[in-house]
Amino acid sequence: MMPDPATLGAILLMAIVTYATRIGGYLLLGDRILSPRMTAVMDAAPGCVLVSVIAPAFAAGRSADLIALVATLFAATRLPLLPTVLIGVASAAMLRFMLPA
């Protein structure tokens, strides 16, 4: 169970790089007065990141997954978080069962 030194080294490197990205924006960019252009960028950035992270769901090759995603998207526009998650999970499970790949 002793951790392997090479693995630990890679993990430490990842941890340092990631923490640097977390504090870098606050320390280096935070005190600037931002231009309207920069403000527009900052306003759009969170959505851009979130939508990129879930892009694989939109690229699913399986019709069951895409139909479930549309149902989830529909739910997300009008329901709170928990019902949306439940609808997403339930519709994906049911459609995958009904429409095998």
Binding site: T18, T21, R22, I23, G24, G25, Y26, L27, L28, L29, G30, D31, V41, M42, A45, P46, V49
Partner: peptide
Amino acid sequence: RHLLMGAAFA
């Protein structure tokens, strides 16, 4: 992306 996020948080 954390750089942008941190700046937006600041």
